[in-house]
Nucleic acid binder design. Structure first.
Lengths: 142, 142
DNA sequence: CCCATCTATATGACACAGTCATATATAGCA
DNA sequence: TGCTATATATGACTGTGTCATATAGATGGG
């Protein structure tokens, strides 16, 4: 509908107020979920539902869509980055437990390099922005 | 085809070598072009073709697709973030000269806030990554 | 004059991550 | 029996970004 650096869906009051109540996921890093999953799984193998909670609590605002999470994990398995085994031990429904493959670790390193690079580019943007609005900084500080 | 933190299209040798010769634009910040355009136009009003060059020379690797650029500018105009006038003064084809509207400036501020936030999240990821691979750092330094 | 090239804007087709809604099944509890 | 929590999964859709291609004015060479 419209563009801009906004959260997913329509904001909390239905109508959107142009600047921060807007639409499409602006500012999000493409594929970042994959990187975060590789890192989490490298630290400790786990299954989807648990990863969902680890992702949620990691940062306050990092709510992740379950559908995306499961599809991403399956895709990563197809790509050979992770491997899964069914776990029927605990109570409740069976769980698909994932662990990282050597290729997954390689990919994680590639992600880290790429993210570092992206982070620098964002820094450059913010520097430029800072130069253009140095005087107006006080008003922003409210 | 596959996922990962990779450049656009198929890499330079046709076949892709899994980690850095892969496919989809991993690591890119969604909508970042809009933010960069708002900042450039705020610094100095300009037309599409010139912006293309300013974006290209800004960072070494920042090649931007012309189709995306023009469509993004038109979209931003529809959203009221920029305004355009035809310029038939110079030689060559007519140019559509853009300038930022007050709403565009507001949006730029929103973008800056969002990008700062994104940058912090990337930093957190890299910190976590660093902790997990502290020992292997030397090999990475090659 | 014709043709190639540079400048300048634009559209069509498509890939892909992410969003939202919904389906399915197991298990525990009231 | 119905309700909730756990757990995995699919369908439909949006929007950014990629790649190829179209169009047109201006310029200079053969």
């Amino acid at each position: 509908m419209c563009s801009g650096p906004c959260q997913g869906h329509q904001g909390q009051n239905g109508r959107h107020d142009r600047v921060d109540g807007c639409c499409a996921g602006g500012g999000r890093v493409r594929g970042f979920l994959q990187a975060r999953l590789l890192l989490l799984l490298e630290q400790e193998p786990d299954y989807g539902y648990a990863l969902l909670e680890r992702l949620g609590s990691e940062t306050g605002a990092g709510g992740v869509d379950p559908g995306l999470l499961y599809r991403t994990l399956r895709q990563m398995e197809r790509d050979g980055l992770v491997a899964s085994t069914w776990d029927t031990e605990g109570q409740g429904p069976a769980r698909r437990r994932y662990q990282v493959t050597p290729e997954g670790v390689e990919m994680l390193h590639a992600w880290a390099a790429r993210i570092d690079q992206t982070r620098r580019r964002l820094g450059e943007f913010l520097d430029q922005y800072g130069k253009s609005f140095e005087d107006r900084k006080q008003e922003e500080m409210v």
